[in-house]
Simulated scan of single mutants.
Amino acid sequence: EYIVRYLISYRGKGIRVGYVSVQNEPKAVQTWDSCVYTPKEERDFALGYLKPALDRAGLDVKILLWDHNKERVYENAKTYFEGDSEGIWGMGFHWYSGDHFENLQMVSEDYPEKSLIFTEGCVEYSRFDRNNLQQQAEMYAHDMIGNFNHGCRAHIDWNLFLDENGGPNHVGNYCAAPIMLHTKEHTIERQPSYYYIGHFSRYVKPGAVRIGISRYTSEVEACSFLNPDGSLAVILLNREDHPVEVVLRHRTKTSALELAPHTIVTVTDEGEKQ
């Protein structure tokens, strides 16, 4: 009932919430405001309490479970989705314990009717060099490419913008963000991660379908999408210290290009519309 009040209050402000998760990081004992759930407890709460409350209030809000790191996505899915799980739309996941792209793929293959959404990721200053802006940008692109290639359907960053300290934050967990605010000067600074994320948000349109791609080398990370209007978008990432020569082929067409060191490139084809 409390969550329903929260959602209705947002609607009163003109904001329609489409998705909700039961608990952020339900396995973490931490300083954040949170509880610890077992997968069964989370499933029981979602199906036995949250979904009925949403239905009674007439709220069409999709429920995501887990909302935590990828390494346990698959093993928890076997609990979340056993039996009648129609009221659970999918799973949210984070990146803090590493790639674990294979876990996403196994969920996609075994539970194709369920959705996977990246619901949180940030570059924490306690773990990464706050001044290495290129590393931060490449972390985003690497994770997004791997996630989308293995079944992820959407990406949500944790922070769109933060102040110059990486906050405000009531537990001192300061982070980077795509846009940093300089509060004294009243200015903003777009970080490289802003533009790296933009290769996805600008060229991959809502409703796009991720399509297959094959690479000749691990030095190039890549993913490709078919947009609803029939256009194609291929995103190529080079995290190496040297340039990489690429010949991109689609059916009978080829295009040669050189990926400079530490760059991201998007190639589009709007000609055939099919």
Rank of each mutant, 00 (worst) to 15 (best):
Y125V: 03
S126G: 13
S126T: 09
R127F: 02
F128A: 12
D129Q: 01
D129P: 01
D129M: 00
R130K: 10
N131C: 12
N132C: 03
L133F: 09
L133W: 07
Q134I: 14
Q134D: 13
Q135A: 15
Q135K: 11
Q135I: 09
Q136T: 08
Q136C: 08
Q136L: 06
M139K: 03
M139A: 09
M139D: 07
Y140I: 09
Y140R: 02
Y140M: 05
A141C: 12
A141E: 07
A141S: 10
A141Q: 04
H142F: 04
I145T: 00
I145Y: 00
N147P: 13
F148E: 00
F148I: 01
G151L: 01
G151A: 01
C152W: 00
R153Y: 01
A154Q: 05
H155Q: 10
H155N: 13
H155W: 08
D157Q: 14
W158L: 04
F161Y: 02
L162V: 02
D163T: 01
E164Q: 11
N165S: 09
G167P: 04
N169Q: 03
N169G: 07
N169H: 02
V171W: 11
V171A: 13
V171N: 14
G172S: 01
G172Q: 00
Y174R: 04
C175S: 13
A176W: 04
A177H: 01
A177K: 00
P178A: 01
M180E: 13
M180T: 06
L181G: 15
L181W: 13
L181P: 15
L181Y: 15
T183W: 09
K184S: 15
K184N: 15
E185C: 10
H186A: 15
H186V: 05
I188D: 13
E189W: 12
E189Q: 15
R190P: 14
Q191V: 10
Q191A: 12
S193I: 06
Y194S: 08
Y194L: 08
Y194P: 10
Y195R: 04
Y196I: 04
Y196P: 08
Y196L: 10
I197G: 12
G198T: 00
G198V: 00
H199C: 04
F200V: 06
F200E: 06
F200W: 05
S201M: 11
R202F: 03
R202C: 11
R202Y: 02
R202H: 05
Y203S: 00
Y203P: 01
